[in-house]
């Protein structure tokens, strides 16, 4: 049991950059280009790891440790995520609170490092990141509360095992509301298009990208890898919600998980190619609407 969970963590760590590679590929196909290979993120990471890092004289050691703290918080969160059908590497009562706060910890250190550089642009990006994550975190907690309330359990492993106990919420439209609000939170947390443009070249419009402008070499590699891992964890979370909502044989569940991951990455790519970025003041509106959907699903299921 534990061995398979460990295997899941290792496979996730290895395969996480694939998702972002696939998103880039989908966007390229939409734009009529051939696009970079799906394995390009790995090449980028290895290239960055071989380089040395440059540190500004105005930064403190905090700037140096922040990327590592962020990445390790995400890896810890990954360990709490149950493998579809087999349970998590680490699991205890109320671990979903830790799961949510590990993301917050990573974000907190990214913001601190951005502020540490003293750059005006980075401060602005940090402020926006903090502002939007207030909403995204609320949505995430609402959906965790919905799942916990409906399955009467406070640990991620038991929440996502609940279909085994005969709990089935797939036939309720509330599940669709929950998934939509979770997807909006995924787009926000992973700095995707209606909220933030990951490929923008103008510092004024950046949110996440501007915060990491001063990182270089291995530090930047940790950050890029962390972003890929975060997308993987969020997509896997949505996949787990879908898997646990209807009974399916145990061997089939990892297959469904991979299919859902692929679908989510494709959906993100399609969204990024067809949608424009929202105006900064319109983002809270979208997130509030998504939060309302999450609350509605809580009310209906609860």
């Amino acid at each position: 049991m534990k061995l398979s969970a460990l295997l899941f963590v290792i496979v996730s760590l290895l395969a996480a950059p694939l998702l972002s590679g696939w998103i880039v590929r989908v966007k390229a196909l939409f734009a009529g280009r051939k696009g970079s290979p799906v394995l390009q993120p790995y090449h980028d990471l290895f290239r960055l790891l071989r380089k040395g890092a440059v540190y500004s004289k105005s930064t403190s050691p905090l700037f140096y440790i922040a990327p590592m703290v962020t990445l390790s918080a995400l890896i810890a969160a990954l360990c709490l995520l149950p493998l579809p059908g087999f349970g998590a590497l680490l699991s205890f009562q109320a671990d979903l609170i830790l799961f949510a706060y590990l993301f917050a910890l990573g974000r907190f250190f990214t913001i601190l490092a951005a502020l540490d550089t003293g750059s005006a642009f980075e401060g602005m990006g940090a402020s926006r990141e903090a502002f939007f994550s207030v909403f995204a975190e609320l949505i995430f907690f609402l959906s965790l509360a919905t799942l916990a309330r409906f399955t009467n359990s406070l640990s991620l492993s038991s929440i996502f095992e609940s279909h085994a106990a005969g709990v089935n919420y797939a036939d309720s439209p509330a599940l669709a509301l929950l998934l939509v609000s979770l997807f909006a939170a995924l787009l926000t947390e992973n700095c995707r298009i209606p909220v933030d443009d990951p490929t923008t070249h103008l510092e004024l419009t950046m949110i996440h990208e501007v915060m990491v402008l001063d990182h270089s070499g291995p530090d930047l590699a940790y950050i890029l890898y962390g972003a890929a891992l975060k997308l993987w964890i969020w997509s896997m979370f949505i996949a787990l919600v879908i898997i646990s909502s209807f009974p399916s044989p145990r061997w089939l569940q990892p297959v469904i998980a991979v299919a859902v991951l692929f679908l989510i990455a494709t959906a993100v790519g399609v969204l990024e190619s067809t949608l424009a970025r929202l105006r900064l003041t319109a983002v809270p509106r979208m997130l509030m609407a998504a939060g309302a959907l999450g609350l509605l699903s809580y009310i209906i299921l609860g």
Binding site: P284, R285, M288, A289, A292, L295, I299
Partner: peptide, 17 residues
């Protein structure tokens, strides 16, 4: 404003449930 009216709407939904 938008946020407040949405919040009021959700309050009303809670109340009616």
């Amino acid at each position: 404003p938008y946020g407040a009216s949405l919040l009021a709407g959700m309050g009303v939904v809670l109340l009616s449930f």
